[in-house]
Simulated scan of single mutants.
Amino acid sequence: MREFRLSIEDSDDDAALLRDLYEAIRDDYELTGVRTSLVPASVPEGKMGAEEILRLVLDHSSVDLAVCGVISAWIAARRARRLKLIVRSDGTAELEINGDNKPAADEIVRLMRAAQENSRDETAGQ
């Protein structure tokens, strides 16, 4: 079982985009085995309001590419000129999306793996 936490920053409406991404993943029939939820996030200093993160729990690696395909398609359909997708799995990896920079599913897979690797690196350094 692997858990990922996704958040969106630097867009015109981070909260609305995150809810839209949550619905896209939740509603995809190929991802019925993926547990999704929106959970409260700590609000960074200097920001107002309640922020949320999208929590994904993947029981099998066989759904990795399907999840990443949905995320990639969701990003491609966005009209947002700018947003930052942040993936955490105890480590952090970020992907900045500006204008026409639309990542493919394999790029999202690398991002999720990088979040896991960063977690392992941080644990090893302790």
Score class of each variant (00 low, 15 high):
106 D>H: 10
86 I>E: 07
93 A>N: 10
49 G>F: 08
89 S>F: 00
47 K>F: 07
79 R>H: 14
59 D>L: 14
79 R>C: 06
23 E>T: 13
75 I>W: 00
11 S>L: 04
103 P>A: 05
105 A>Y: 00
103 P>V: 07
72 S>K: 05
20 D>P: 04
53 I>E: 12
16 A>R: 14
43 V>P: 07
5 R>N: 10
84 K>M: 13
96 E>M: 06
97 I>E: 02
8 I>K: 04
123 T>C: 07
15 A>H: 08
5 R>M: 11
124 A>V: 10
72 S>P: 05
56 L>F: 06
44 P>C: 05
22 Y>T: 07
34 V>T: 00
74 W>C: 09
60 H>P: 00
54 L>Y: 03
41 A>M: 11
68 C>K: 05
4 F>Y: 15
73 A>I: 06
92 T>W: 02
99 G>E: 15
37 S>Q: 13
21 L>H: 01
84 K>S: 12
113 R>W: 08
103 P>I: 06
91 G>F: 04
4 F>I: 06
12 D>L: 10
79 R>T: 15
33 G>N: 14
21 L>G: 02
101 N>P: 02
89 S>Y: 03
110 R>D: 14
6 L>K: 01
8 I>D: 02
13 D>T: 08
18 L>H: 05
52 E>Y: 10
30 E>K: 11
119 S>K: 06
39 V>F: 04
88 R>E: 15
101 N>Q: 13
69 G>F: 00
66 A>Q: 13
8 I>T: 04
89 S>K: 03
90 D>I: 11
89 S>H: 09
96 E>F: 10
21 L>S: 03
45 E>M: 10
95 L>S: 01
4 F>L: 08
56 L>P: 03
112 M>I: 02
25 I>F: 11
10 D>H: 09
117 E>W: 08
21 L>N: 00
61 S>R: 14
31 L>P: 04
110 R>C: 07
70 V>W: 00
40 P>E: 12
35 R>F: 08
25 I>Q: 05
2 R>W: 05
111 L>K: 02
1 M>G: 14
5 R>G: 04
8 I>P: 00
113 R>Q: 12
81 R>E: 14
114 A>F: 01
28 D>G: 04
120 R>P: 01
35 R>S: 09
59 D>G: 15
105 A>G: 03
87 V>T: 15
112 M>H: 01
35 R>Q: 08
59 D>T: 15
120 R>C: 06
24 A>Y: 03
25 I>M: 09
29 Y>C: 08
114 A>S: 14
70 V>F: 03
16 A>G: 08
50 A>S: 14
20 D>Q: 13
89 S>L: 01
72 S>V: 06
94 E>T: 15
17 L>S: 04
80 A>Q: 15
76 A>C: 05
87 V>Y: 02
62 S>G: 12
105 A>C: 05
12 D>M: 09
95 L>Q: 06
37 S>Y: 06
46 G>T: 11
79 R>Q: 13
102 K>E: 05
49 G>I: 09
106 D>L: 08
28 D>L: 03
90 D>G: 08
124 A>C: 07
81 R>C: 07
71 I>M: 06
95 L>R: 13
60 H>K: 12
25 I>W: 09
69 G>V: 01
110 R>F: 08
